[in-house]
Computed example of a mutant assay.
Amino acid sequence: MQDRKPRHGATRRRPSRAQRSTGPSLDMWLDRLVDIAVTMALIVGMVALAVTYL
């Protein structure tokens, strides 16, 4: 007999980032780079709109 609980769904769950590794990973650096790029794009866009309407 099976002692395991039945699984729901076909997708296997991956361990969270905290469980995978404690050191900085490439994913963390890429996430930070994307955050900075999006923030810069928003700032540039807002400045462009302000310059256009002033």
Score class of each variant (00 low, 15 high):
M1V: 05
M1P: 03
M1T: 02
Q2G: 04
Q2N: 11
Q2K: 09
K5F: 07
K5R: 13
P6G: 06
R7D: 07
R7G: 09
H8W: 10
H8C: 12
G9T: 01
A10V: 04
A10T: 05
A10N: 11
R12V: 04
R13L: 08
R13V: 02
R14Y: 14
P15H: 10
R17K: 12
R17H: 13
R17T: 08
R17C: 08
A18K: 15
A18P: 00
Q19K: 11
Q19T: 02
R20I: 06
S21K: 07
S21Y: 02
S21H: 10
T22W: 14
G23F: 13
P24V: 15
S25D: 14
S25A: 14
S25H: 09
M28C: 10
M28H: 13
W29F: 13
W29I: 03
W29P: 00
L30H: 13
L30W: 08
D31M: 08
D31T: 06
R32Y: 11
R32I: 05
R32N: 07
L33F: 12
V34S: 11
I36Y: 02
I36L: 06
I36A: 05
A37F: 06
V38W: 03
M40T: 08
L42S: 05
L42V: 06
L42M: 12
L42T: 06
V44Q: 10
V44E: 13
V47W: 07
A48I: 02
L49P: 00
V51L: 02
T52K: 03
T52I: 01
L54I: 00
